[in-house]
């Protein structure tokens, strides 16, 4: 009886997982397809990877995306880490409110956030482009780092900092010698998560990008709406491989793999 139940649940999980991976597998397979058509299979080839290497626009978009993700997750890493460490120490009344507001960017629907930034940046007269993109992305990257670091601080033994102070360390030394090394896994996995989120973001980017700055998701999005060239498949497949590496890294860093949320 028990065995039967377990087998049932295993089948259920396997089917659902298969469905989850189906579209990804389809994209990967077609990236090796010899023809542009997806109607009939016409054999394997690496054509699209070769074409991709020559596609200036697509590579430019990829470069932009990587710069954007790097800058936003980097800024979020600094602001989020310092903020989480500091928040645990200060006792201000505004603390709760600021903490709540700072997590809003991942709580409210993305489209609202995009709209908010678009309207605000326009009103401020900021030129749309890399600057607005970085500001927008940093806003939703911060909560990932902040929450990761915050929860790792909860598990941090307070007496370690006290011991260091007792041995003669100043607050700054305590931070760099003790706190930071111990929360580093959380900082890094928060930043990796933020990096991946930024790299994947379409909605906010569409609203805050300028006419001349393309990110990869924006380009894919416009192509999906007009007409797809399988170079995109090839690019997606490469990105998937990169994702595997990132997930693997973050797994190694933190015991608990962070889910995107």
């Amino acid at each position: 009886m028990k065995k039967g139940r377990i087998r049932c649940s295993a089948i259920y999980q396997a089917v659902l997982l298969a469905l989850m991976y189906l579209p990804i597998v389809v994209v990967v397979v077609y990236s090796f397809h010899a023809s542009k058509s997806t109607i009939r299979w016409q054999g394997w080839s690496l054509d699209w990877y070769r074409k991709l290497a020559g596609n200036r626009g697509l590579l430019e978009a990829l470069k932009n995306s990587l710069i954007l993700a790097g800058l936003s997750s980097g800024a979020a890493g600094v602001i989020g880490t310092l903020g989480a460490v500091g928040m645990a120490r200060v006792n201000w009344k505004s603390k709760g409110a600021v903490e709540y507001i700072s997590t809003l960017p991942i709580m409210i629907p993305e489209i609202i956030l995009g709209m908010v930034f678009m309207a605000f940046f326009a009103a401020m007269g900021l030129p749309f482009g890399m600057v607005t993109l970085v500001l927008g992305h940093t806003s939703f990257c911060i909560p990932y780092v902040f929450m990761m670091v915050k929860s790792s601080l909860v598990g941090l033994d307070k007496s370690l900092g006290e011991a260091a102070k007792d041995l003669g360390a100043s607050e700054v030394r305590v931070f760099f010698d003790i706190t930071l090394p111990l929360i580093m896994p959380a900082v890094l996995s928060g930043m990796l998560l933020a990096f991946a989120m930024s790299l994947d973001d379409v909605v906010i980017s569409i609203f805050v990008t300028g006419a001349r700055t393309n990110t990869l998701p924006i380009r894919i999005y416009t192509q999906l709406k007009s007409g797809v060239t399988p170079e995109i498949n090839a690019l997606c497949t490469i990105m998937l491989a990169v994702t595997f590496v990132i997930v693997g890294l973050s797994r190694m860093l933190g015991k608990k793999a962070p889910a995107r949320g």
Binding site: S159, A163, A164
Partner: peptide, 29 residues
Amino acid sequence: EPNKRNVNTVFQNYALFPHMDVYSNVAYG
């Protein structure tokens, strides 16, 4: 401040720095 007085503490849970080896722990002060 605690770092300014010539008094040292052995904490209840030892509070050894988990990311440092024995040598670095002892040498820290």
